[in-house]
């Protein structure tokens, strides 16, 4: 009996070495062939530039001559010359841009989430013209950001803008406001445009989640006589929470790298600059590739950190068995 078991064991081991049928072998071989071009291109246009950016952040490279630079360690980030602290981490403009970006992200994503839920609930109801409504809310999403910014710029124009005109007529303001040039209101203007442009994205993701909810639980709640608000907070909201989280994360990551909206909408002052604007300004306008790369690297690290935390916390299941 024991001999038979041992023999079976050897058999299994011998078999294991040649166990892959030609179907599996050829499929795995072709899998690598199929992804190789994409991987090579991504390594070239994403991996390599990212690595170079991080490398440049430790050098004094200048845009005029990118091949002539010296390694200077962490001096772009933080350096001490004769007791005086220098570098990115001591630059108030950098910290202003960080604060601007975080504030912009928090405010716009919060508003978009609330409005997105409302719009999604409306689109989830059956009413004549629902398809048309869904198309209409997609329009702001499709308009290029630059164009949106320009349109709003015009509407917010201090002398001829329609928004000042409306508010004056309604008696809400006494004199025309300089919305985009004024540091106090410029970021609010950016939030308004962002909300206008991206609420539909949020709404559509939430709507997709709403439409996947089983209908019978709502019928059961109706039979039990639960009030609609209770149904929303006790049933709907918990059930769409995972989708809502994904949408919030996607939007937050997008908002954290905001560039074009603020760049075009506001008058490019340091009071309203985002992190991306700051980095590009160092890089292109001031030709300080080293400093700009340091800012870029920090932005990357901040966003990477957020991604890693969310992926770990949300346990987003990736690459699971396709079956």
């Amino acid at each position: 009996m024991a001999g038979a078991v041992a023999q079976g064991d050897v058999f299994v081991r011998v078999a294991a070495r040649r166990r892959r049928s030609s179907l599996t072998r050829s499929r795995i071989r072709s899998a690598w062939l199929f992804i190789a071009p994409s991987l090579i291109i991504l390594a070239l246009i994403a991996g390599w530039p990212l690595a170079r950016t991080i490398w440049f952040s430790f050098t004094d490279a200048n845009l005029n001559n990118l091949s002539d630079y010296e390694f200077i360690g962490f001096e772009n980030y933080l350096a001490n010359y004769d007791g005086e602290w220098l570098g990115l981490l001591t630059d108030p403009d950098w910290w202003q841009s960080v604060w601007n970006t975080v504030w912009f992200t928090l405010v716009s994503v919060s508003i978009e989430t609330v409005l997105g839920i409302i719009v999604a609930l409306i689109l989830n109801a059956t009413f004549p013209g629902r398809g048309l409504m869904r198309a209409i809310i997609l329009i702001p999403w499709a308009i290029p950001t630059i164009v949106s910014a320009k349109m709003w710029n015009w509407m917010l124009h201090d002398q001829f803008g329609v928004i000042n005109d409306m508010l004056l007529r309604a008696g809400l303001i006494a004199a025309p406001m300089t919305w985009t040039a004024n540091a106090d209101t410029a970021l609010w203007a950016a939030v308004a445009v962002d909300v206008w442009k991206h609420t539909s994205f949020m709404a559509l993701l939430i709507l997709a989640a709403l439409q996947m909810l089983p209908q019978d639980i709502y019928e059961a709640a109706k039979v039990d006589g639960v009030s609609p608000t209770r149904v929303f907070f006790r049933i709907t909201l918990p059930l769409i929470k995972p989708a809502l989280l994904v949408a919030v994360i996607f939007r937050s990551l997008d908002a954290l790298r905001v560039f074009d909206l603020i760049y075009v909408l506001t008058s490019n002052s340091r009071d309203t600059a985002s992190m991306s604007i700051y980095a590009r300004q160092q890089l292109v306008d001031f030709q300080e590739v080293g400093l700009g790369s340091a800012a870029s690297t920090l932005i990357f690290l901040i966003i990477a950190l957020i991604v890693v935390i969310t992926l770990a916390a949300g346990r987003v299941r990736l690459g699971e068995d396709p079956r």
Binding site: I45, P49, A61, L63, L66, R257
Partner: peptide, 12 residues
């Protein structure tokens, strides 16, 4: 973030 690859991409 696009800006993270900006200087490397510029060089490339």
């Amino acid at each position: 973030p696009q800006v993270a690859v900006l200087s490397g991409m510029f060089e490339l």
